[in-house]
Amino acid sequence: MKNAQAYFKSPWRVLIFIVLVLTTIIWLVPIMTSLVTSIRTFNDILYRGFISWPEEITLGNFKTAWERGGLSRYLPNSFIITIPSLLLTMLFSSMGAYALARFNFRGNRLIFFTFVGGMLLPFQVLMLPVFKLTDFLGLYDTYWGLIFFHTAFQLGFCSFMLRNYMRTVPGEILEAARIDGCSEFRIWWRIMLPLTLPAIAAVATLEFTWIFNDYLWAIILLRSEKLKPITAGLASLQGQFVTDWPVIVAGALLGTLPTLLVFLFLQRYFIEGLTLGATK
């Protein structure tokens, strides 16, 4: 309360606060609307208009999306794709980042800039060749095809972030270990990684939402219904329940739940991840 009193010391502040509240409400409208829509029936909305007191409240839309819409099948796929991609990306990028951050060697800059450039690449450029490549490697329509692509494509961003962070680690610690006869591999694994953990957590949280939310690559590299992740499933939900918006919206909310949970519980890391590369 004291906090609030201190804040509202001038009328300006009150005005700003009101504007803030209004903006926030506007920002929340889409999500709130979805929540309300998802517990109503379509006929109810259709015949009585959206702005009306719901005739009945139902969880049936969630059930329909989950069972008949097949989301129960798509959701595990999302995890099977996201988690290995995430682990592989973090593993490889932390290796690469270590080399880039702590060694002077020919090509360091070039490799670094290639990674940074690649992370800004309009990924559509890669669509056709990556499809051909994946097929060529016999990975088309397998989880691994998608996992390898995600791993490779996210390497740029992760290496960039982790490298910048690793450079801030004091060199003395590593020197000390080296003098003790530690191999470089052990130094990376036993000293660098633990020290970089905050950055890894931050980047990993961010990557989780990115990979989990991917839609384009899933529809390009996968063919079978039983392999598809939730984002692709949601799109076909729209094909299936074309006019039944409450079911579609309920499905969308269900599909968002994992990333939302990750975000809510790991918010700090998520935010750190976003800012890590931009400001130091």
């Binding site: 690469g96 060697f105 450029v125 060749p129 692509f149 791993t151 494509f153 290496s159």
Partner: peptide, 24 residues
């Protein structure tokens, strides 16, 4: 050593990102 650390990331990156870019 640094090349050893970078080998896998670079190979993956070349195959999946840089190569396809040139193919485009």
């Amino acid at each position: 050593l640094p090349y050893l650390f970078l080998a896998i990331p670079i190979i993956i990156y070349l195959v999946w990102v840089i190569g396809p870019m040139f193919y485009t």
